[in-house]
């Protein structure tokens, strides 16, 4: 019988969910190098690219939707 079914009422559901993840990560075999790569990737994406190269132009430049709409109206009326 699976372990989880032997622990009726002993542990809360949250504890069991936490255990699922903690034990899972602890026992990973191919996971370690993958996780290193994922962390490097996420760091490059969020701490470098998003922060320094990809600002949300409209949200960072204007405080309200009316100004954002006006900006886009001006942009679309330019004969590009």
């Amino acid at each position: 019988m699976p372990k989880s079914l032997n622990t009726k009422g002993k542990n809360s559901i949250f504890r069991r969910i936490a255990d699922l993840y903690i034990d899972g990560f602890r026992n990973m075999t191919v996971g370690r190098s993958l996780w290193i790569l994922i962390i490097i990737k996420l760091f490059i994406m969020f701490a470098i690219l998003k922060l320094f190269f990809f600002p949300d132009l409209l949200n960072s430049t204007y405080n309200n939707d009316e100004d954002r709409a006006q900006h886009v109206r001006n942009e679309l009326l330019k004969n590009k």
């Binding site: 990809f54 600002p55 949300d56 409209l58 949200n59 886009v72």
Partner: peptide, 11 residues
């Protein structure tokens, strides 16, 4: 979308 294509994203 937010940086290069902001006109599109809003539209």
């Amino acid at each position: 979308f937010g940086t290069n294509w902001s006109n599109y994203s809003w539209f």
